[in-house]
Simulated scan of single mutants.
Amino acid sequence: MITIKGLSKIFKTNQQEVKAVDDVSINIEKGEIFGVIGYSGAGKSTFIRLINRLEEPSSGDVVINDTNITSLSVGKLRKERQKIGMIFQHFNLLWSRTVFENIAFPLEIAGIPKAERRTKVLELIELVGLKGRENSYPSQLSGGQKQRVGIARSLANDPDVLLCDEATSALDPETTDDILDLLVSINKKLNLTIIMITHEMHVIQKICHRVAVMDQGRVVEQGDVLSVFVKPQSKTAKRFVQQLSPLEHQQDELKRFITNDPNREVVKLHFIGNDAKRALISDVLRKFDIEINILQGSISPTQEGAYGTLYVELSGNKALITETIDYIQSSGVEVEVIENVN
């Protein structure tokens, strides 16, 4: 549905050239919520502005529904942009206009008749949960309500794609979750393709199906959210995953359990999907004459299923420990023997 190939953006100054986006290639399916995450300066906001040519690419192509956005004339681009909605970190509302008038603004520009405009705006107000606030001004709204106006306005022209540039980073955690829930609902109701730019792994975890990790203008890793969470490959992805995995910051607590005793092993178990809900420990204790000491554990949900991490100490005959580990692995749970903690 969206094919991005070799996309680059170079900013030139008197002294140097800065490659803000460097040869990025991504395919995004229709109806998916695709996340792009990176730290400040990674190039993610420039990248999303290249998609609808708010920034002109230095090279590369952006193809949406078989239309090459990068090759359109100014006139054709203006028309094509009506199919690409966008919401911003700081809302970008018209402060002298009411909620109703803000949402109606793109329809006015598109020349939609007044009666049809009114019907559409009222539908959108209902969709984003702002019924009763039609005549309020932005200064009378909370941050979450302002972003709901921004979302409704971005949907006014029935876009195929919604670009979200740090859409929740100005909001408190509870409001952020409300807005993310709204975006998931809109995605399902309208089969709308959403591209989320963020520096918050919580956003990726909660609503995205796939994710690309950016660092210094390049995509250093991409894949299903669950895969990236469970087995991050790049240094940047590992740092982001640690934000949501407090166990990774508490590994020093495991040191006292790690010994050279062949009859004791500390192992890390990875549970994915339905395996995260299994009573694996009880199952193992029924089958093997072994002691299990649970040291640390956590479970996290994603759009593609849950994943969990559990650190346990196995105590018993060495051969029995090996047999137990083999059994756990055969059940579909990944096992990593912890030999030291860095």
Rank of each mutant, 00 (worst) to 15 (best):
V99K: 01
G144C: 09
D283S: 13
S227F: 06
I299D: 01
G35Q: 05
I10S: 01
V161P: 00
I109H: 08
R239M: 15
E313I: 10
V21Y: 03
K206T: 00
L141N: 00
F34S: 10
D160K: 05
K206V: 06
V149I: 06
N293V: 13
N52G: 13
S185F: 06
P246T: 09
L163A: 04
E123L: 03
G132D: 14
Q205F: 01
P106E: 06
Q296W: 05
N340Q: 10
E166P: 06
S58A: 12
F240R: 01
D178L: 07
K120I: 05
Y137K: 02
D326H: 14
D22W: 12
R264G: 10
I37L: 11
G143T: 07
L163G: 09
V220S: 08
V62N: 11
L122T: 07
A115I: 10
L180T: 02
L295P: 03
F91R: 00
K287N: 15
V228W: 14
I321G: 02
M214A: 04
R117E: 11
Q216D: 15
R117A: 08
S331R: 14
D261I: 10
E221M: 07
V219K: 11
G223R: 01
D252H: 12
I26R: 06
L244N: 13
I69Y: 13
R278G: 05
Y307D: 07
F34H: 06
S136D: 05
D22F: 10
Q89R: 09
F11H: 12
N340D: 11
K19T: 13
G305D: 04
Y311Q: 12
V62H: 07
E17K: 09
N52T: 09
R264L: 11
Q296Y: 12
R256W: 10
I272E: 03
V312R: 11
R49W: 09
I4Q: 09
D289R: 15
D215W: 04
E17R: 03
P262W: 10
K268S: 14
E248A: 14
A319I: 14
F47C: 02
G143N: 07
E80G: 02
V184Y: 04
K189L: 07
G41C: 11
A115N: 14
R97D: 00
N157W: 05
L171W: 03
T3W: 00
T309Y: 15
E304S: 15
V161A: 04
I194A: 02
A279F: 13
T3Q: 15
I204H: 09
T98V: 08
I204E: 08
E32H: 08
H249E: 12
K76F: 05
G332R: 07
A170F: 09
P262Q: 13
L127D: 04
L280Y: 12
F257A: 14
V225P: 06
I64T: 02
L190F: 08
Q243C: 13
R97F: 05
F100D: 00
A212Q: 03
E248L: 11
D181R: 08
A20Q: 11
L107D: 00
T324F: 13
V18Y: 14
L247M: 15
G316Q: 11
L295A: 06
I151N: 04
